[in-house]
Design a protein around this nucleic acid. Structure first.
Lengths: 203, 203
DNA sequence: TAGATTGTTAATCGATTAACAATC
DNA sequence: TAGATTGTTAATCGATTAACAATC
């Protein structure tokens, strides 16, 4: 699924998608200028980004909203069912297991894992929780290519290693450490503490 | 606290900080090349980023690790105590209230709010929870300039408006909507669902 | 037709990298 | 001194914006 789109453009696509979905059903057409004004960006940028999804508008009228939504969803792979696993059923991990925001992108967290044996065998957010040792078998069984790491920083690298050797190809890491992984594995980080600190330092 | 640093450089500072803190106490010096290799980036970039914090290294030996940590912490304002409030005590909000990762940046979530009256008066993650109507008074009392929005997308704009009129200057928004706010208010977004979808589409 | 909007090409802007002098 | 590393200046690269032709 390698694409000829800059990652920074890719990151904006869900923003467009959310905005378009929030519009009233009645609006059949929408122009790049309207989108740009609503989201506070340049309209040429909007058109360039949308062009990557192979959606196209009509001069004078704009884009058909429903078509644009469909093109964005297809480009983002929302129609394809993709499985993910989650490691670290603490506060954040539990919240993510119960979070409903992955479904609209076709992503399903099928199983979670925690090093605490007392959590193994339970269910959190409706998802079965196993021990860390169950990771390889579960990844193989479910065919999951995605993993969420929500363990403490001290455990993250080790968990990453297990995930990589289990065949995981993409890791969303919430631990505040830089994970070492083979180039073939894509790692992206979300550091909530750092994000708030950065925000604070912009004030 | 307006700075002459590109935001993209600012975003890397916590990464350096975490890495430097993770090194063994015994290492007195560290070079930009070592940092770059560990984090998978160019060494000139590391030096440029570090230069923004007014830390400086010595040719031939590198940077004094402890000085670098101190400079980064000072630049990021970790030494200054800053208060934040959180709105939306659902799964994610509760997890963030219990999350310990803000303290190292000098940020303290002092109070939370939820529209559900049954939550008002309780404590979550050790933090007092009030009703949404308590926001203005609490913001004034605590002097909080930062807010975390962890409510559903449908409520986020209204919550944003309340926070802005209460005097909040920076908002970290977890709801998948683009918030409208005055230019004087800095808004940054974390969309966990979108982040995982983007990751998936890179595979 | 006239006007609005798209899509593309060229220009600008900003960030990263390369080259290299300074220096400990 | 020689070598390693910093810090800076210039070159490159990539993303955004401006200009504008195409078109419905």
């Amino acid at each position: 699924m390698i694409r000829d789109i800059p990652e920074i453009s890719l990151q904006r696509l869900p923003v467009y998608l959310n905005y378009l979905k929030s519009l009233p059903e009645g609006d059949k057409y929408i122009s790049s200028g309207t989108i740009a004004a609503a989201l506070g960006m340049g309209e040429v940028l909007v058109r360039k980004d949308l062009a990557y999804t192979s959606s196209s508008g009509r001069p004078k009228v704009g884009y058909v909203r429903a078509e644009l939504i469909a093109a964005l969803e297809e480009y983002l792979g929302c129609d394809k069912k993709r499985n993910a696993v989650l490691v670290g059923v603490g506060g954040l991990g539990s919240a993510l297991l119960a979070y409903g925001g992955f479904a609209k992108y076709g992503i399903d967290i099928v199983e979670a894992f925690d090093s605490d044996p007392s959590k193994a065998g339970t269910r959190v957010g409706g998802k079965p929780v196993g021990g860390d040792g169950d990771i390889p078998a579960a990844v193989e069984r479910s065919g999951a290519a995605l993993a969420i790491v929500a363990v403490p920083a001290s455990a993250a690298q080790q968990v990453c290693d297990v995930l990589v050797s289990a065949g995981i190809k993409g890791i969303l890491n919430f631990a505040p450490v830089q994970l070492r992984a083979p180039e073939s594995v894509v790692v992206r980080n979300i550091d909530v503490g750092a994000s708030l600190a950065i925000l604070a330092s912009l004030l």
